[in-house]
């Protein structure tokens, strides 16, 4: 791999800014502009936080339901199963993120190995 390959071309970097950085960053800056005046204990903030949590939940669901890249090679039942089994262990271990993530991953890998 040459040095030039590691740098790439300027066209690709321009695409990164137009398609990636600006569409992503605009929401943070809107949040900064809008959030400047909100009080920490206000009811509006309770609603905003609930919407943030629910949108994040949607992002989680989207990755599992319409998987990107290599994850698409994993059958539906294994993806849903990994989240379900991971969630059960997470709750049984008094909310251990580590236990939940490891269980979900092991379930998916074991299932893939078992299915061949």
């Amino acid at each position: 791999m040459s040095f030039a390959q590691l740098i790439g071309d300027w066209h690709a970097l321009a695409v990164l800014f137009i398609a990636g950085v600006v569409p992503n960053q605009i929401w943070r800056m809107l949040g900064l502009w809008f959030g400047g005046g909100i009080d920490e204990g206000s009811e509006l903030l309770v609603w905003v936080r609930a919407v943030a949590t629910a949108i994040l939940a949607g992002v989680i669901a989207q990755i599992v339901v319409e998987p990107p890249g290599a994850l698409a090679s994993v059958p539906d039942v294994l993806r849903y199963g990994a989240v379900g089994v991971g969630l059960i262990v997470f709750l049984l271990t008094r909310r251990s993120i580590f236990a939940g993530v490891v269980t979900g991953e092991v379930f998916m890998l074991a299932g893939k190995w078992w299915l061949g």
Binding site: P23, I38, V48
Partner: peptide, 17 residues
């Protein structure tokens, strides 16, 4: 990208205070 990033708006609004 921008649809996935909408969550950042309420996150920033709720974390900055």
């Amino acid at each position: 990208v921008t649809v996935s990033a909408i969550r950042l708006f309420p996150m920033v609004v709720s974390v900055l205070p």
